[in-house]
C-alpha cells in the first residue's frame, strides 16, 4: 500500500507528535550545552548523537545548525542559484560567540514517522532575536487561520510575504530550496531497520516520497512544496505539512518549524506544547482565547 493514500488516523498523529517532541527535546538539550567556541558542526554532531542514542532510524534531513549572521542567511549561504541547493547551507566551521543567535534544525524519523523542527536561541542576550521571536507568533496564527479557511497555499504564502514586508523583515525561507515556506511530510513504511540511507544529508526515503508527491501532484494540479508560486495555487491538501517561516533582520534570523495537520475540512497544529509557544505564553503574548486556530471539535 502506498502510504500517501492512507488517511491519517489519531494514532498516527500521536506517533508524529511523539517524534516532534523528541526532536524539540533534542534541540533544547543541545542548545543548553552550547558554549562559546563551538562550531556549527559540533552542534549538528551533538544532535545526531542524541538521535542515535534515542533510536532514531531515519531522517528527512540530518541536523543543521546555523550561527551568527548565517541565521539570516547572509553571505554565501544566501546564494539562490541552482534552485537554492547550496552547500553553504550545511553546518560549517562558524564558531559560537556570546550574544550570537543560533538556529538548530533537525528532522528525525522513528519507525516511519517523521518530524521536522526549527529552534532558535542565543547565548546570552540579543534584542533583535527577541523581537523576531515575538513577532513569529503572528505568522503561526496567520498560517493556520488561512489554512482553516482553505485559502490557496500560494495566497497564504503571499500573505506571509506581506506580513514580512509590514514587519520590515526579509522572508529568508525564500533562500531554501524552491523558496519553501512548507513542505509535505509523509508516513514511511516501518521496515524495522535500525539505519536508512541518506544522500547529501537528506533521508533517501523521505526525499523519494517528496519526489513521488511532486510527480503525482504535477498530474493532479497540486504541489508538495508550498511557496508563493503558481504551482501552489490550490487549497491545502490533506496530510502533514512541515511549515517553516524564517525571518531575517540585519544579521539576525529566527524561525520555528512544526507540523501542520490538514484534513478535508480543517487545519490545526499537530502539537501546541512546543518551545516557542511556551515562550510566548511566558512573555504574555499568547492570546487568552486563540481565535479560530484550534482543531474543530470532532
Amino acid at each position: 500500500m502506498n502510504p500517501n493514500h492512507a488517511s491519517l488516523q489519531p494514532q498516527d498523529l500521536e506517533r508524529f507528535a511523539a517524534v516532534q517532541r523528541l526532536a524539540y527535546r533534542c534541540a533544547e538539550t543541545v542548545a543548553a550545552e552550547l558554549q562559546p567556541g563551538m562550531t556549527e558542526r559540533d552542534a549538528a554532531a551533538r544532535m545526531q548523537a542524541f538521535f542515535d542514542a534515542e533510536g532514531v532510524d531515519d531522517c528527512f534531513h540530518r541536523p543543521f545548525a546555523w550561527f551568527g549572521d548565517r541565521t539570516a542567511f547572509r553571505g554565501l549561504i544566501g546564494v539562490r542559484a541552482l534552485g537554492g541547493f547550496n552547500p553553504a547551507f550545511y553546518p560549517g566551521l562558524r564558531r559560537l560567540e556570546t550574544g550570537m543567535p543560533f538556529i538548530l534544525d533537525c528532522a528525525p524519523s522513528v519507525r516511519g514517522y517523521t518530524a521536522d523542527i526549527g529552534y532558535c536561541g542565543v547565548l546570552g542576550e540579543n534584542r533583535l532575536l527577541d523581537k523576531l521571536m515575538d513577532d513569529l507568533l503572528e505568522y503561526r496564527m496567520l498560517i493556520v487561520s488561512m489554512a482553516k479557511q482553505r485559502r490557496p497555499l500560494a495566497e497564504i504564502s503571499r500573505a506571509v510575504d506581506r506580513l514580512c514586508a509590514r514587519h520590515g523583515y526579509e522572508p529568508r525561507h525564500k533562500a531554501y530550496p524552491f523558496e519553501t515556506l512548507a513542505h509535505r511530510v509523509e508516513t514511511l513504511q516501518d521496515d524495522g531497520k535500525a539505519r536508512h540511507h541518506s544522500v547529501a544529508r537528506f533521508g533517501l526515503r523521505n526525499v523519494t516520497e517528496l519526489a513521488r508527491d511532486a510527480f503525482k501532484g504535477r498530474r493532479e494540479g497540486w504541489s508538495p512544496i508550498w511557496n508563493s508560486g503558481a504551482r501552489s495555487e490550490h487549497p491545502p491538501t490533506p496530510g502533514l505539512w512541515a511549515v517553516e517561516p524564517h525571518l531575517g533582520f540585519r544579521g539576525v534570523g529566527a524561525k520555528w518549524e512544526e507540523l501542520l495537520v490538514v484534513t478535508e475540512d480543517d487545519a490545526f497544529w499537530l502539537d501546541d506544547d512546543v518551545p516557542h509557544v511556551r515562550r510566548w505564553q511566558q512573555r504574555g503574548l499568547w492570546p487568552a482565547t486563540p481565535a479560530d486556530t484550534n482543531r474543530k471539535a470532532a
Binding site: 534584542r127 533583535l128 523581537k131 520590515g168
Partner: peptide, 13 residues
C-alpha cells in the same frame, strides 16, 4: 502604524 513600526525597528538598531 507603519511609521511607528519603522521607528521601532530603528530603535532595535
Amino acid at each position: 502604524e507603519a511609521a511607528e513600526r519603522s521607528a521601532e525597528l530603528a530603535r532595535l538598531l
